[in-house]
């Protein structure tokens, strides 16, 4: 994972060459050689937070260090695999993202960063992708970068700052503290919130299926 050269799906699910049940987000990015689209970003966020939430308190939360850890499964589920080295103590050189044990908000922060990087994949350092405001807000809040720009951070949380119509009300984002908060925001992105589980699962299922199709095609060409 994270190496150079042509994409070789097979490592992530331990089924090299055979039928695959999961692809890592990194494999998907490398196969397409382009970033994920916005709908896929919403879907991966929703599905990943769903599986983290389902895993519950029984599992020690871990930061997401790379897209290689995010697994998109054939059935549209998205799970988080431990990073290499996560089994033991974090290495002294692990840095800010390297601590294994952390809070739920820290996992969300790291997930937001990795999702942004997947949206930014392949872009040059001096280029920036124009994201839709709702997705940018989601990532801003997940990654906890809202305060960093020195702008009016309070606007999202304050209910009395001129948010008038329903759309504004819907977009109003309070601080994200849990996987459930992220899922609620992702659901609010849809016209019918109750469709979120089926919709986002279908988006991830399609992402897996289309990537596998591309992989098969590229393998034949090879």
């Amino acid at each position: 994972a994270g190496g150079e050269g042509p994409p070789e799906p097979g490592e992530a699910a331990g089924a090299a060459g055979g039928s695959r049940d999961a692809l890592s987000l990194e494999e998907i990015l490398r196969l397409y050689n382009q970033p994920i689209n916005e709908e896929q970003a919403w879907a991966v966020c929703y599905q990943c937070c769903g599986s983290l939430r389902a895993a519950g308190a029984g599992r020690q939360p871990r930061r997401v260090r790379s897209a290689a850890q995010i697994r998109v499964w054939r059935d549209g589920q998205v799970t988080l695999a431990p990073a290499a080295g996560d089994a033991g103590e974090p290495p002294a050189s692990a840095g800010k993202l390297g601590y294994s044990h952390c809070t739920e908000t820290e996992v969300i922060e790291s997930l937001g960063i990795i999702i942004y990087k997947a949206l930014d994949y392949g872009l040059k350092e001096n280029e920036e992708r124009e994201l839709s405001p709702p997705l940018e807000q989601l990532i801003d809040h997940m990654a906890n970068t809202v305060e960093a720009d020195g702008s009016n951070d309070e606007g999202y949380e304050a209910a009395d700052e001129g948010l008038e119509d329903e759309e504004d009300e819907k977009r109003k984002i309070s601080a994200i503290r849990s996987y459930r908060d992220v899922m609620k925001l992702c659901a609010a992105h849809l016209s019918t919130e109750s469709e979120a589980p089926n919709h986002y699962q279908a988006v991830c299922r399609a992402l897996f299926a289309e990537t596998m199709e591309l992989h098969t095609f590229l393998s034949k060409i090879k």
Binding site: N37, K96, I113, Y116, E127, E128, E130, L131, T145, D149
Partner: peptide, 24 residues
């Protein structure tokens, strides 16, 4: 279908890319 369509703008110091970069 399946193709990402997005606009690219110059990176801005106060943009989300810069803020994310500061985090990593």
């Amino acid at each position: 279908k399946g193709k990402s369509l997005y606009k690219i703008k110059p990176r801005h110091d106060s943009g989300i890319k810069a803020k994310i970069s500061m985090k990593t």
